[in-house]
Each structure stands twice: as C-alpha cells, then as structure tokens.
C-alpha cells in the first residue's frame, strides 16, 4: 500500500470506511492525535514498537483524516483519505 507522511509519522494515504489506519511513529511521542479539521481531536496511544492503530472515523468517502504528532509548528502530519470499502 502506498505510504505517506513526513518523517515522524508514516502510514497509508488511503483507508477504507470501517477499517483501521496503522501508522508508524518515528519519535517518542506517546500518542497520535486524530482530527477532521475542527477543534476536536481524539488521541490514540503509541505502543512500545512505535506503532498506533487508529479506527477510521465514521465519515463519508473522500474525507481526509488528519493524523499528527507533536504540537505547534513542530507537528508532523499525515493525511489519510477515507475511501469506500470494496
């Protein structure tokens, strides 16, 4: 699967509805932050192997899920587009 993201957080560029997004974290951040562009976000823990598993939010296909680590302008961002489940 095509991978995307800057050094810091890597994962797929698309994810199916109802699926899971598995990301690799290249820093020591204890969690990844997931949002859809608003103020609200959900945090998912990063395991000791520096991986995190994120359930795809219930959103329409075409929506981008914004996965990030860090804060401020040091934040690393991965955008994952939700696609229809085959």
């Amino acid at each position: 699967m095509r991978q995307g993201g800057r050094p810091g957080v890597r994962g797929p560029t698309t994810a199916p509805q109802g699926g899971t997004i598995d990301v690799e974290v290249g820093t020591n951040d204890p969690f990844v932050e997931v949002s859809l562009g608003g103020e609200e976000s959900t945090r998912y823990p990063v395991d000791p192997a520096k991986k995190a598993s994120i359930p795809v939010p219930p959103v329409p296909p075409g929506t981008l899920v914004i996965i990030s680590i860090g804060t401020g302008l040091r934040r690393k961002v991965l955008l994952v587009e939700v696609v229809e489940d085959d």
């Binding site: 932050e33 949002s35 562009g37 608003g38 103020e39 976000s41 914004i66 990030s68 804060t71 401020g72 302008l73 934040r75 690393k76 961002v77 955008l79």
Partner: peptide, 15 residues
C-alpha cells in the same frame, strides 16, 4: 511549504 502543519495546528490549537 508548511500548509498541512499550519492548518492542523491552527484548527487544533489556535482556533
């Protein structure tokens, strides 16, 4: 150049 980071940061931290 930092649009993605900027957008995420503004929406999450400085809304």
């Amino acid at each position: 150049r930092v649009a993605e980071t900027f957008l995420a940061t503004v929406s999450l931290q400085y809304a």
